[in-house]
Amino acid sequence: MTAINEFIDNEVKNADVVLFMKGTPAFPQCGFSGQVVQILDYLGVEYKGINVLADDDLRHGIKEYSNWPTIPQLYVKGEFVGGCDIIREMFQAEELQGHLADKGIAFKGAA
C-alpha cells in the first residue's frame, strides 16, 4: 500500500464521516463539492472535509482508492457512499438520512 493510500485509509477509518472534496467545507472550490457540503450542513452532520486540491498525490490517490473517477467522495464509517449525484439523489429520496441513521451518525431530524 502506498503512503497516500495509507493516509486515505487512516482518514476514512478514523473519522465517522469524511468528505474528500475540492476546497474546504467553509470554502468549497467546485459546485459539486459545494452541493455535498450544503447537504451535510443542512443535515447537521459532523464530518471531516479533506481538500484534495492541496495535494496532487491525494487527488489521484482517492480516485484509485475508491475506484471512483470524480470528486467529491463521501465516506461513512469507512464505507464509500458516493459522489455528488449519488449523495444528492439519496438525500432527496431520504435514503442518505436512513443510511446515516443505520450507521449511528447523528443528524438533525434523526429520530
Rank of each mutant, 00 (worst) to 15 (best):
D57A: 08
E89L: 08
Y47E: 13
K103P: 06
H99W: 07
F7Y: 05
V12K: 06
H99P: 01
Q35D: 02
V12N: 08
V81T: 09
N10W: 14
R59Q: 12
K103S: 09
A93K: 15
H60K: 15
I105T: 04
K13L: 04
K48E: 09
Y75R: 02
M1T: 14
E64T: 14
F91Y: 12
A111T: 10
V81Y: 03
A26S: 13
N5P: 06
L100H: 01
I39E: 01
E6M: 06
A54C: 13
E89F: 03
V18C: 04
F107C: 02
D56A: 15
D102M: 13
D41L: 00
D55R: 04
N10F: 14
F7C: 03
R59G: 12
G109E: 14
D85K: 05
A54Y: 08
I39Q: 02
I62T: 13
G104V: 09
D9Q: 15
V18T: 12
L40P: 09
I8N: 03
A101E: 11
Q97I: 06
Q97F: 03
A93Y: 01
P28E: 03
F20C: 10
L19K: 10
I62R: 10
I8K: 01
Y42G: 11
C30P: 10
G61H: 06
I4T: 14
G23S: 11
T24P: 04
G23Q: 08
T2D: 15
K77F: 05
I86F: 06
I105W: 00
I8M: 04
L40G: 02
D85I: 07
H60L: 12
V76R: 00
E46I: 10
A93G: 01
F107I: 01
A106F: 04
G34W: 00
D55Y: 06
I62W: 07
Q92A: 06
F20Q: 10
V17W: 00
C84L: 11
W68L: 09
D16M: 04
L58W: 08
E11S: 08
C84Q: 08
L43Q: 07
P28C: 03
I71W: 07
F20Y: 11
L53E: 12
A26Q: 11
A3G: 07
I62Q: 05
N67K: 14
F7H: 08
W68Q: 12
K48W: 02
D102A: 15
G49Q: 04
L19C: 11
D85C: 00
G104P: 14
